[in-house]
């Protein structure tokens, strides 16, 4: 799944915010199902076999989320049965079912986002708003693996010195606490080196006059980024118009309304479908192109 990764971080984030925004905040059943299918296809392309391992988790999560609503929510007019003196309604069951779909879809979208948006790309975005904070984050990200490595080394050394033992849970916890305390000293001590290294390379506190730091941007906004964003805005416009016109409005309570499938409703559904499937379409297009190039050689 390289096609989508290659886009500019802004493009990726705009796309995801639009898609997850609609998923999270617009609860029309057909929309939710479309989003969930889109997320699933995207996840398959991204994760491949890895996805199989998380299916049980998604399934249990789905079940749990679907069951909670009818147990706590007693709105709705169609009574199904009573449980411990509480009324269980058909509407609440339907709502719970679709909320569960929503949650699963959002989880899958965000998982995809995490894969596509490396920490670099996030830092770039934060950096456009607050470069100093982005620098702090970059430094912290540089420290985290260093600290984890050091923790491991200290653990091994101290174990071989008989200073910590792993015989019981409690002594293990106490040992970890002591190591953590040592880590605080060690990391502050080493941070002084980093501070020196920064100053040696001309990093100055803000208050010096005539000092202006620049920011190196390792990403280029290309024509394809512009095209994709334009497409996303266009599709968003079409389906927003459809929503505002009421062509596909739906309500779960007090009585679950019937789904409308009119000529007018097809347009926003199609627009959303295309929007959600964009990454998959791009990916498949590229894969086909490659097959074509290879055979053409």
């Amino acid at each position: 799944m390289n096609t989508f990764k290659r886009f500019h971080p802004v493009t990726i984030v705009v796309y995801f915010f639009v898609v997850t925004g609609f998923t999270m905040f617009y609860n029309q059943p057909v929309f939710l199902v479309i989003s969930c299918i889109g997320a699933l296809i995207f996840s398959i392309l991204l994760l491949g076999r890895e996805l199989i391992a998380s299916i049980p988790f998604y399934f249990l999560f789905f079940l749990g989320a679907a069951v909670i609503n009818p147990l706590f929510n007693h709105n709705g007019t169609t009574i199904l049965f009573f449980l411990n003196g509480q009324v269980i309604t058909k509407e609440a069951v339907i709502y719970g079912f679709f909320m569960a779909i929503m949650l699963i879809a959002v989880l899958m979208w965000f998982r995809a986002l995490s894969i596509l948006m490396s920490s670099d790309k996030w830092l770039f975005l934060f950096g456009t708003v607050t470069p100093r904070l982005a620098l702090v984050m970059s430094m912290a990200l540089r420290y985290i693996p260093l600290f984890r490595m050091q923790v491991q080394k200290i653990q091994q050394t101290q174990k071989a010195m008989g200073a910590i033992n792993e015989d019981s849970y409690l002594s293990k916890g106490a040992g970890s606490l002591q190591i953590f305390s040592v880590m605080v000293t060690w990391s502050l001590e080493n941070a002084i080196d980093t501070a020196d290294s920064m100053r040696a390379r001309g990093f100055v506190d803000h208050h010096k006059k005539n000092y202006k730091r620049s920011r190196f941007v390792n990403y280029k906004f290309r024509r394809s980024d512009g095209l994709l964003i334009f497409l996303v805005i266009l599709l968003t416009g079409i389906l927003s118009a459809g929503i505002l016109k009421g062509a596909i409005s739906y309500s779960y309570y007090p009585t679950a309304s019937k789904l409308l499938f009119s000529k007018e409703s097809i347009i926003p559904y199609a627009a959303y479908g295309i929007l959600v499937l964009l990454p998959a379409i791009l990916e498949i297009k590229e894969r086909i192109q490659w097959i074509y190039y290879k055979s053409g050689m």
Binding site: M137, M139, A140, I144, R148, S187, L188, A191
Partner: peptide, 21 residues
């Protein structure tokens, strides 16, 4: 610069600590 680094170090410690425990 020191405060900048201290925030970075403390943040990294709290995240790395999540792994330790």
């Amino acid at each position: 610069t020191r405060k900048l680094i201290i925030i970075a170090v403390m943040t990294a410690l709290s995240v790395a600590g999540r792994f330790l425990f």
